[in-house]
Simulated assay, not measured.
Amino acid sequence: MTEPLLQARGLVHRYRGTTALDGVSLQLRAGERLAVVGGSGSGKSTLARLLLALDTPDAGTVALDGRPVRPGSPRSLRWFRRRVQTVPQDPGRSFNPRMRVGQAVAEPLACLRVPGDHGARVAELLVAVGLEPDAARRWPHEFSGGQRQRLAIARALAPRPDVLVADEPVSALDGVVRLQVVDLLAQLSAAAGLALVVVSHDLGVVQRLCERVLVLDAGRVVEQGPVAQVFTAPASGVTAGLLDAVPALAPAPA
């Protein structure tokens, strides 16, 4: 078995005396798609922020390819940001309205000092997410919510990362558009060997997109394993409760 690409060990994080995470560990291998699920207040978003080195754990470690990762200056984290990117929950708020789409998608390339033809890379990415290259000349407000999320995915992919961390990436979208974006993430992950950490309360999204699931409750891991196994025969009452709250799961693509 290959060594973990991204690894967390014993993460503890407290907010104003309240323990948001209590000893959480996980491993993510290259190309793997891992879901993190749980109820409100379970610690899902806190875990995502620690994995992205946006917050400092009170205890425990995060490492990428065995190299420790902690919050720091943009310069000290440049190596990490090139390899680990994020897809936002609300694509509308993630774009500068005064910046054309091409500039916005190319922004990580400039900030991270990625060499090469940035314009060509932007055109390549726009096509990869199902948009026309001339979209680069337009403004973010000219696109629908689903199109803006495609643009956000393009921007995250710009520096050719190894890992995407997505916190509720389709919760702001509706119906068919949600499934289109989920399927796009699956296709891009498979094509590029990209690993995903998907934080979601939508178990239909998890079933459609992810291979393995980690269930959080009150900041602790209560269950983890292959999605099909955990969803078919949950070992934890927490998982069973989450499944009972879902009227119907979206069928996985054939």
Rank of each mutant, 00 (worst) to 15 (best):
V127P: 01
A152G: 09
V177R: 03
A172M: 11
R212D: 00
Q229L: 11
A154S: 09
V177Y: 04
T232I: 01
L131V: 14
C210W: 00
L194Y: 08
G204Q: 06
D202P: 08
L194D: 12
T232L: 14
V129H: 06
E132D: 15
A233V: 14
P133Y: 07
V221N: 07
L157G: 01
R150W: 08
V170S: 02
V129F: 13
A172Y: 00
G225T: 10
L216G: 03
A191W: 00
A152Q: 15
I153M: 08
L194H: 10
V199Y: 02
R155T: 05
A158H: 10
D217N: 13
V170I: 14
V221F: 11
A228M: 02
R138C: 15
G175N: 12
D202Y: 09
L126T: 10
V181Q: 03
Q224K: 03
G225A: 12
V205T: 12
E211K: 00
A233C: 06
R150C: 08
L173E: 04
Q180M: 06
G146T: 04
Q187P: 01
H141V: 15
V205Y: 01
G145N: 11
L173S: 01
S144E: 08
Q224M: 10
V205G: 03
V213S: 02
V198E: 03
E211S: 01
V129A: 09
E142H: 12
L196M: 11
A186R: 15
V222F: 08
A195F: 02
L164Q: 02
A154K: 14
